[in-house]
Simulated assay, not measured.
Amino acid sequence: MEETSMQSAKPPILRQDPAGFVRWFIDRSFDGSEPVEDIWDSCHTPDAVHVMNQKPIARARRVKQLRQWRLRESPYVLQIRDAVVEGDRLAVRYAILSGVLWELRMETEHIEFHRLGDDGRISGSASVSRSGYIWGEPRDPMVEVEGAVADAPLNALPGTPGDDIATYLHEYNRLVSDESVAADDVFETFHTPGADVRINRTLKHRSDMVAAIRRARKKGLSHSVEVHDVLRQGRRFAARYTMTPERRRGGGPTLAVFDVGRLASDGRVCSLHTMMQSSSGAWPS
């Protein structure tokens, strides 16, 4: 019994079981009897640097937030919606749901990018988090198809996202402002026609994305892209980047963008969840 207890007191190895690691950390922090500080330190190095919603966040503040949730003793559901591991880097998308009244729920969705230290603990992270109300069960296809396409064969065509994620981010952005290429072709070069695209929780159909390209061209909007992190594991991918308007006046805000998605067999994006936040803290859709 003592050996089992000691084993359960340690988190799963993050590189091998990212979903298990996140579940261990959240469940122990919210429901456990151990000091929250000890749980935090078992998963993070002492000198780890963390940024949440574009602002540095200290260990003391995160520990305080976790302790406050524990004191509420509120029932919750944790959904690990996607995870991508490449080398010493990890991206994970998950949501915490708690009941409010009848079928009304509060859903807090997170996308986190972590870098691992030599001992396997998190040595740095950049994350985005947003809460909102939903009615009934969440309508998130990633919950239903978790793992279904991750290990399927990928025969990425040249120039598709599956060929190079970073190039896709730059090229898609460049072609958005290139009026010599039809807006429909811009979208379908990089995405399947029926791609499930969600930006800040709002479902975007192909027609919505094409219309957005046309609006950007009409307004003369263009952005430069600075890619900070790209990961790919099988058909799963994640990217973190900044979009800066090239026109100072009327060009729109600078955007911090977090993407987690899946690739079709030809290398195009078939599912994409994006959380983007402006430099002022707004959540454009």
Rank of each mutant, 00 (worst) to 15 (best):
D119F: 07
V143A: 00
A216I: 00
E107W: 00
G281T: 04
A126E: 15
S123K: 09
D140F: 00
F21R: 04
R215T: 08
T167N: 12
G117V: 03
V176L: 10
E188R: 02
M276A: 08
T244V: 11
G251L: 07
I122M: 09
Y168D: 06
R130N: 10
P253S: 14
R121F: 05
D27S: 15
E37H: 04
W102D: 07
D140N: 14
A95P: 02
R121Q: 05
E179S: 14
E188Q: 06
D164H: 15
D118S: 11
P284R: 12
Y76P: 01
W283I: 08
D118I: 03
G20D: 09
A195P: 02
G136I: 01
Q68I: 01
R174P: 01
R59S: 15
L116Q: 12
I13V: 13
A9L: 12
S42W: 07
K204C: 12
R217K: 03
D259K: 01
L78D: 08
S8Q: 15
R59C: 11
G281L: 05
L221E: 02
A264L: 08
H205E: 15
E188L: 06
S279A: 03
H170N: 06
F258A: 13
W69N: 02
V36E: 03
D17C: 15
L231R: 04
D259F: 10
R217W: 05
D47K: 14
R105W: 00
R215C: 02
Q54K: 10
I39C: 08
V225F: 02
V225E: 10
S74A: 13
F30T: 01
R93H: 03
D163H: 15
E34K: 08
R61A: 14
G32P: 07
G267M: 04
W135I: 09
A60I: 06
G252F: 09
P18K: 06
D151R: 15
H205F: 02
R214F: 01
V22T: 15
R89W: 09
M6D: 13
A282Y: 05
R249P: 01
M275W: 04
Y94A: 00
K64H: 10
I111W: 06
R130I: 02
H191R: 01
R28E: 15
G252P: 08
M142L: 10
V84L: 01
Y168P: 05
D47I: 07
A256L: 13
S222R: 10
G250H: 06
R201C: 07
P245W: 08
E226D: 07
P141I: 04
G251T: 05
G132I: 01
S222W: 04
K10Q: 14
D178P: 09
S123Q: 07
A9K: 09
L90N: 01
G147R: 04
M1K: 11
T45D: 10
L104T: 07
P141K: 04
G234S: 11
G261E: 00
A58L: 09
S180R: 12
L221G: 03
P158H: 12
A182S: 08
S33Q: 13
E73Q: 14
P18A: 14
P193G: 05
R201S: 00
D38W: 09
S285K: 11
D178I: 12
K219C: 01
